[in-house]
Deep mutational scan, measured.
Amino acid sequence: MATVKFKYKGEEKEVDISKIKKVWRVGKMISFTWDEGGGKTGRGAVSEKDAPKELLQMLEKQ
């Protein structure tokens, strides 16, 4: 499965696309949330040019 790689608060992170729940556009950035388990929700953002095609497809479906 595809993953999204991004930096959050200076830390490199990687999230499996299948865990992503919500995707939206903020200017030229793609923001998203995912389920971290245990009732926690993670947040992240990646530039439109660095976003994997699967993430962009999720954005178009909404």
Rank of each mutant, 00 (worst) to 15 (best):
T41I: 14
G44V: 12
G39P: 15
W24K: 07
S47Y: 09
I17R: 02
E11N: 10
Q57W: 06
E48D: 14
E11R: 06
E54I: 03
G38D: 10
T41M: 15
E12W: 15
D35P: 10
K5S: 02
E11C: 15
G37T: 11
D50L: 10
M58G: 06
L56F: 13
K53Y: 10
E36R: 04
S47T: 08
I17D: 01
T33R: 12
V15M: 04
E14L: 03
Y8Q: 04
P52V: 05
Y8V: 04
P52W: 01
G27Q: 12
K19I: 11
E54Y: 04
E12N: 05
W34M: 01
P52N: 04
K49E: 06
V46F: 02
G37A: 06
G42W: 13
Y8R: 01
I17N: 01
V46Y: 01
K40P: 09
K40Y: 12
E36Y: 05
E54V: 06
G27S: 12
E11M: 10
F6T: 05
G39Y: 05
I17Q: 03
Q57A: 10
S31F: 13
V46E: 01
W24E: 14
F6V: 14
W34Y: 09
A51V: 07
K13S: 02
F32V: 05
K9R: 05
K21N: 08
K49V: 13
R43F: 13
K49H: 05
G42Y: 09
A51Q: 03
G27V: 07
K7A: 03
T3D: 01
I30T: 02
D35R: 05
E48S: 04
K22V: 15
G37H: 08
G10V: 01
T3R: 06
R43A: 09
G10F: 02
G27W: 07
S31C: 12
K19Q: 12
K53V: 10
M1K: 14
K61V: 13
A45F: 05
E48G: 05
V15H: 01
E48P: 12
Q62M: 08
T33S: 11
S47N: 08
K53G: 14
M29G: 09
M1F: 09
G38M: 06
D50S: 11
K7T: 12
G27K: 09
E12K: 03
M1V: 10
R43T: 15
F6L: 07
A51I: 07
K53E: 12
R43L: 15
K19S: 10
A45C: 14
V26F: 07
K19D: 12
K61Y: 14
T33V: 10
D50W: 10
S31G: 06
W24C: 15
P52A: 05
Q57K: 09
W34I: 02
L59S: 13
K9F: 09
I30A: 02
L56C: 15
D16S: 09
I17Y: 01
K19M: 14
V46R: 01
L55K: 00
D35Q: 12
I20Y: 00
P52L: 04
K7L: 12
K13M: 07
K49T: 11
L59Y: 11
D50P: 02
Q62E: 14
S18V: 11
L56I: 15
E36C: 12
D16L: 12
G42T: 05
K53S: 10
E54T: 04
E48L: 07
L55C: 01
G42P: 12
A2D: 10
K61Q: 08
I20L: 08
F6Q: 01
A45R: 08
W34T: 01
E60M: 08
I30V: 09
G37V: 08
F6N: 01
E14W: 04
F32M: 03
K19Y: 13
K53F: 06
K13W: 05
T3P: 02
D16M: 10
T41K: 13
F32N: 00
G39S: 13
K40T: 12
K22N: 11
T33D: 09
E54M: 06
L59W: 05
V4F: 02
L55F: 05
Y8A: 02
K9G: 06
D50K: 04
W24D: 09
G37I: 08
W24I: 14
K13C: 08
E11T: 08
E36I: 05
V4Q: 00
A51G: 13
W34E: 00
K5C: 02
T33Y: 12
K21T: 11
V4C: 01
K53M: 11
K7M: 14
K21W: 14
M29Q: 13
K13Q: 06
R43E: 10
A51N: 02
K5A: 02
K19T: 14
K7W: 08
P52G: 04
A45P: 01
R43Y: 08
I20H: 00
K13Y: 12
G38T: 11
G27M: 10
G44R: 01
K22Q: 15
K22S: 15
S31T: 08
G44D: 01
K19V: 10
L59Q: 08
P52K: 02
E36T: 08
S18K: 08
G38Q: 11
W34S: 01
K61W: 09
T3E: 01
Q62I: 10
T33C: 15
I20Q: 00
L55M: 09
R25D: 05
L56E: 06
E14Q: 03
A45W: 11
L55W: 03
G38S: 12
I30D: 00
D35K: 04
M58A: 12
